[in-house]
Design a protein around this nucleic acid. Sequence first.
DNA 1: ATAAAAGTTAACTATATGGTCAAGACCTAG
DNA 2: CTAGGTCTTGACCATATAGTTAACTTTTAT
Lengths: 210, 210
Amino acid sequence: MKNNKEIKKTGNIRIQSQHKIMIAASTEFVLQGFKGATVQSIADRAGLPKANILYYFKNKENIYHAVLEHTLQMWDEGIGDITPEDGPKAAIEKFIDAKVRMSFKHPESSKIYAMEIIQGAQHLKDFARTYQRKWVREKAQLFQQWIDNGEMRDVDPIHLIFLIWSSTQHYADFETQILTIMNRADYEDEDVEHVIAFLTDMILRGCGLN
Amino acid sequence: MKNNKEIKKTGNIRIQSQHKIMIAASTEFVLQGFKGATVQSIADRAGLPKANILYYFKNKENIYHAVLEHTLQMWDEGIGDITPEDGPKAAIEKFIDAKVRMSFKHPESSKIYAMEIIQGAQHLKDFARTYQRKWVREKAQLFQQWIDNGEMRDVDPIHLIFLIWSSTQHYADFETQILTIMNRADYEDEDVEHVIAFLTDMILRGCGLN
DNA sequence: ATAAAAGTTAACTATATGGTCAAGACCTAG
DNA sequence: CTAGGTCTTGACCATATAGTTAACTTTTAT
């Protein structure tokens, strides 16, 4: 009880502050990059004095790590799992649906992750990379089995995953460009559904599932 | 003659130095981002003293602008043109072929461009954005005509272009991740052909052209 | 041959920034 | 009420870095 309360009270302000800082930091990292985002700019955006930021995170790198980790975790949770029972059609539908929704809901996460990869994944821990390799290979194997069973066309499963990945992520990462091209200020709710429908249709057909 | 020689000689060293600097700068900008890339690091990579860099480019921003402009120009030249006579199949084939080859040949360009867009295209001149909108809309209209003529399935042409764009670009931008997943150190020549074949097959089929 | 132009570079400066510190405010438990 | 912890924050410092300058060398034009 006592311990509980301590966590509830003392922990709360810590969590809350850290959360507020991470939100602000995400924006700054997207806008300015890791080096370009200054602790001061993060502080300003979070509405806190700089020293307070450094009180909750030992240094800028730690903020970035926290943000990255949070991103990975969100990705991991958001991307529902695919099972052999799903069959190829449902699997692709689930996968596209989840990724597109995530792209539209958390574009900053996608952007930060993309920048990290583009720059060579210098801050990404080895285990994260290995984890992803395992994930992709596992899913690819599922697709391969469906192919072997004649449940879908014989397409390279690894590249199929890349295709889904890239085409869905694009709406987050290239938001600016896409909005410019569509001559719009913001995405709207219908866009999500439209994109899901479009991509699902195209890719299912590519796999001979339509 | 005199004038010619002057351009040939004097211009040469200028062009050569600028080129060398831009190559080095590209790498640094990809690796460290705009703010993270220091003039010194660019100088070191180019094998020149810092002051020499600043002699050829007034400041860091100018180096970045030159690199960006070069990238845009290359993209513009590399992406062959599509004409109404091509018909949808050849158009898609040409487009994918050109973009994939560019991704594998000049990944840094693709990366710099991607980072610029992700960060909100803060350095991109308005005319470049407008130009791209025009380009995409123009091509989309072509596809729309083919659709109206019953030459291909009725898919959203703008999103079709996004799909081709994203899936091809991905191999440049996410190089690091893709190599990790494929457990490889580098791309090989066959990869280009394989990717072209895979994407062309998938997307043509998606458009009902196969 | 020579003067002007172009190129090279070490040394310097001003500033921005990451991070520290210490003093004090504010909780919380007993 | 008070002692120990947590939180807050202005002031400070060391360093990294963009950009300048000025002296010097090399190239080019005539």
